[in-house]
């Protein structure tokens, strides 16, 4: 996993990986507890958290924890997720993307257009979930807001929760679909072939970096 091993290119350091999985586990807990109160058919999920009242108590605290953890992660990932011209071309060729025809796509840096869109989707969703979540956090905050604002908060919270869950399903599936991605986030490294195939511009940057060292 170090620079001298030509078979491995480091993609995520230990701190980033741990940070990612803290966010990921928080998200799963939030999605389960949120869905439990989202639709009656899923109310049984409250059993995983010790019942309805405990689900209601825990959900917002886990939410705050996740926002804080994601904030740390996003600071690390921010620079590489800035959208560039080539990302828009990549996104326009989404048909080639889903059909595994990567030879038709422009070269990709550390992240592709889809990953960057996901990154900003998460940021927007989390910001809105945090704000709307405060509005409907009855125990501490709802009393300070008008009932119309609380109603709007409830609707917005459900909506952005829904968007985020769909976005993360896409994210998880992308990890399953593009083989070698999960290892990048569990072990931290990818093979040169993986980097060359999926993130060629980044691969060149990294190889040049190794040679210069």
């Amino acid at each position: 996993m170090n620079a001298r091993d030509p078979e491995r290119i480091e993609r995520y350091g230990a701190a980033t990986r741990i940070n990612h999985w803290i966010v990921a586990i928080s998200f799963v807990l939030l999605a389960l507890s949120g869905l439990a109160l989202f639709h009656p058919a899923l109310f049984w999920l409250t059993n995983l958290f010790g019942g309805g009242p405990w689900t209601r108590i825990l959900h917002p605290f886990i939410g705050c924890f996740m926002v804080a953890a994601f904030l740390l992660l996003s600071v690390k990932l921010w620079r590489d997720n800035m959208l560039q011209q080539r990302d828009w071309i990549w996104l326009r060729k989404i048909g080639d993307v889903v059909n595994n025809r990567e030879q038709n796509l422009p070269e990709v840096g550390r992240y592709n257009g889809g990953q960057k869109i996901l990154f900003f989707t998460i940021i927007v969703c989390l910001a809105c979930l945090l704000l709307s979540g405060i509005l409907i956090w009855r125990q501490y905050f709802s009393g300070y807001f008008s009932v119309d604002l609380v109603r709007l908060g409830a609707l917005a919270h459900a909506f952005f929760g829904f968007v985020l869950i769909c976005a993360i399903i896409v994210h998880i599936y992308a990890g399953i679909w593009v083989k070698g991605s999960i290892r990048a986030m569990t072990r931290g490294w990818v093979t040169p072939g993986w980097a060359w195939k999926h993130h060629r511009a980044w691969f060149r940057e990294v190889t040049r970096g190794i040679q210069q060292r």
Binding site: V98, Y173, W177, G180, W194, W196, F203
Partner: peptide, 24 residues
């Protein structure tokens, strides 16, 4: 997602990709 995996299949890195990377 499930249907995509069944219908189109995973995106894998093969030896050719590793060779290309090595050459570069």
């Amino acid at each position: 997602g499930f249907l995509h995996y069944i219908g189109i299949g995973p995106n894998e890195t093969d030896e050719q990709d590793e060779d290309a990377a090595r050459r570069e």
